Amino acid sequence: MESYEEKFIHTNEDLEKLRSDGVLMFQQVPMVEVDGMKLVQIRAIMNYFSSKHNLYGKDMKERALIDMYSEGLADLNEMFILYPFDPPGVKEANIALMKEKATNRYFPAFEKVFKSHGQDYLVGNKLSKADIHLVEMIYNMEELDANIIANFPLLQALKTRISGMPNIKKFLQPGSQRQPPVDEKSVQKTRKIFKF
């Protein structure tokens, strides 16, 4: 595993300094400095690291499937990322909607993919970024409902398989999380810095 340094933006001044230095192509984060590049846009960053570490399929067909699965998960993940910023009443409705979409649309679709080919991973029977995205989404949804994948045994097996990988297992250990849970103070601070 490559070593890296992670820096968080804590103030509006930190963000403005990056913007004025010209390192943020579209004036927004995240930004990753790697291999002599300053990459922005989360999908560009993920695709670069997926390609670099052989998590992006062996050919165009596999990459298309990986992209399709990842983009489908991105739709649900966007809802998850934004719901802490929803006002009361709207937040509860969006949580219910996310749970409904996860259990009636997304998770059944992925369970069907696994049933259709009987392999351990979504594409080419090899770990890809789509598998990692799916397990990340499972963890996210389990924050809302601990039993959300109870009716999806193949998704449970994928989660167990990926969660048991040494680097993932280490990351998941208590105390290893890099960011604190979202609280109302953090939400207000984020709204102020990013002006929404």
Rank of each mutant, 00 (worst) to 15 (best):
V34I: 08
N54Y: 13
K61P: 01
K101N: 08
G124H: 04
F114D: 10
M37K: 09
I162W: 03
E142Q: 15
K91D: 01
D86S: 14
R178L: 08
K115I: 14
M79D: 05
L122N: 05
L97M: 12
Y139M: 05
S116N: 14
K61F: 14
A150G: 06
M37W: 04
K112A: 15
A74G: 07
I95P: 06
D14R: 00
S3H: 07
E184M: 07
E78P: 00
A74K: 11
K91A: 05
M31W: 00
S176Q: 15
K52F: 07
Y56Q: 03
N151S: 13
G164L: 10
I9V: 09
P153Q: 10
M60D: 12
Q179E: 06
E100M: 13
P180D: 09
E71V: 05
N77T: 10
G164A: 11
V187L: 03
F171P: 00
Q119K: 15
G118F: 08
E16T: 01
Y121A: 02
M137Q: 10
K192S: 07
L97V: 03
L155G: 12
T160F: 13
S51Q: 12
F107P: 07
V135G: 08
N151R: 08
H10K: 11
G57P: 06
E184G: 02
M98R: 03
G57T: 05
G124L: 08
I9E: 01
F196E: 04
E184S: 09
R63P: 04
A157K: 15
E33P: 00
I193W: 01
A44H: 11
P87E: 15
L122H: 07
N94T: 13
V113A: 11
F80D: 00
E100S: 14
Y69T: 02
D67R: 02
D67F: 01
Q27M: 09
A93H: 13
S50P: 04
Y83S: 05
K7N: 10
K101V: 08
N94R: 14
V23S: 00
A102M: 09
I132F: 01
E6H: 14
K189G: 00
R161A: 05
F152K: 06
A102G: 10
F49D: 06
Y48K: 02
H53D: 04
F8K: 13
G118Y: 08
G72L: 06
L155P: 12
F152Y: 14
M60E: 12
N125E: 08
E100H: 14
N104K: 14
V23F: 01
T160N: 13
L55I: 07
A93K: 14
